[in-house]
């Protein structure tokens, strides 16, 4: 059995003349919580919809749970939980009816877990879905997708439009009841993602800019400040330095391959008269913003 639950190779997708995905390679390891981040229009939702066989007409190879995405059928869907922002629900059903409707479709449906989720999310069984708030609807959708212990959970912008309290409850429910699952989540909410994602992939203009473990990523990126005599920037600098800016006697940049000794050597080489070097760890949000700006500048 492959250690990767999701594999895409050279995944390409066009909507008319617009290239949405451009040779995307993605690997989601089994048991990971993989956050797919990127700007609006980067191709996150398209990627997830291709993975779920909701979109066709793509090029490249896509494998989900060891099966070609084009051949996903009821057997595989019984092992997948999928919740997306703006998903259309049978609004005429009550929460209870909604859960009861799905129960027979899943051989692994766990009634005890269903009760736990209902309690955790405080979902009113007799309330129609159309009368639920946006957050409650998302929680109902998540409850119906966790009760059968899916091997893979795919969440497309699940926090969009939710208030902080509901987000916390959502994440709590997700993490408490998906311990055996692999989770792929696309989101703009980097602060929330950072708190629980084990892996992160940064998608920009249909291409994967980086994809790695969160810990490695945090270790790799540093914001560096160099105190110099003159803020003029040399023409030659290491490729791993991005967003290099000079102001008064300070040069700031983001080191994308941080290694204390090597970076010190490179700083000394580029700025021979440097009077001091300070480094700061970066959060996911800061890394995302830095990389997004670099990508846009390059474009």
């Amino acid at each position: 059995m492959s250690s990767d639950v999701i594999i895409t190779e050279r995944l390409g997708m066009r909507f008319g003349k617009h290239l949405v995905l451009d040779g995307l390679d993605l690997r989601v390891p089994r048991g990971s919580v993989y956050a797919l981040i990127g700007s609006n229009g980067a191709g996150k939702t398209t990627t997830l919809q291709i993975l779920m066989h909701l979109l066709r007409g793509y090029s490249g190879e896509v494998s989900v749970l060891g099966v070609d995405a084009r051949r996903l059928n009821a057997g595989e869907y019984a092992r997948i939980g999928y919740v997306a922002e703006g998903q259309e629900m049978p609004d005429w059903m009550t929460v209870g009816e909604f859960l009861a409707f799905w129960r027979p479709f899943y051989p692994n449906w766990d009634a005890a877990r269903e009760r736990e989720l209902l309690e955790l999310f405080r979902l009113p069984l007799d309330r129609k879905l159309k009368h639920l708030s946006r957050g409650m609807r998302m929680k109902a959708a998540l409850a119906s997708s966790l009760a059968y212990r899916p091997e893979l959970i795919v969440l497309d912008e699940p926090f969009s439009g939710l208030d902080p309290l509901v987000r916390d409850e959502f994440i709590e429910g997700l993490l408490a009841h998906a311990e055996e699952s692999t989770i792929l989540i696309s989101s703009h909410d980097l602060t929330e993602i950072e708190s629980f994602a084990s892996h992160v992939g940064f998608l920009e203009e249909g291409r994967m800019q980086f994809s790695e473990e969160m810990a490695v990523l945090a270790e790799r990126f540093r914001e560096v400040e160099v105190v110099v005599e003159s803020p003029s920037l040399p023409s030659q600098m290491p490729e791993s330095w991005v967003r290099v800016e000079g102001a008064s006697s300070m040069v700031r940049f983001v080191e994308t391959r941080w290694d204390a000794e090597r970076t010190q050597r490179e700083v000394a080489s580029v700025f021979p008269g440097a009077r001091g070097v300070a480094t700061r760890a970066m959060g996911l949000r800061a890394i995302f913003v830095a990389m997004a700006k670099v990508s846009r500048k390059a474009a």
């Binding site: 779920m52 909701l54 979109l55 869907y77 019984a78 997306a84 998903q87 259309e88 049978p90 795919v154």
Partner: peptide, 9 residues
Amino acid sequence: TRQYWLVRP
């Protein structure tokens, strides 16, 4: 692509 039943068995 957004109907509730599509990614269900």
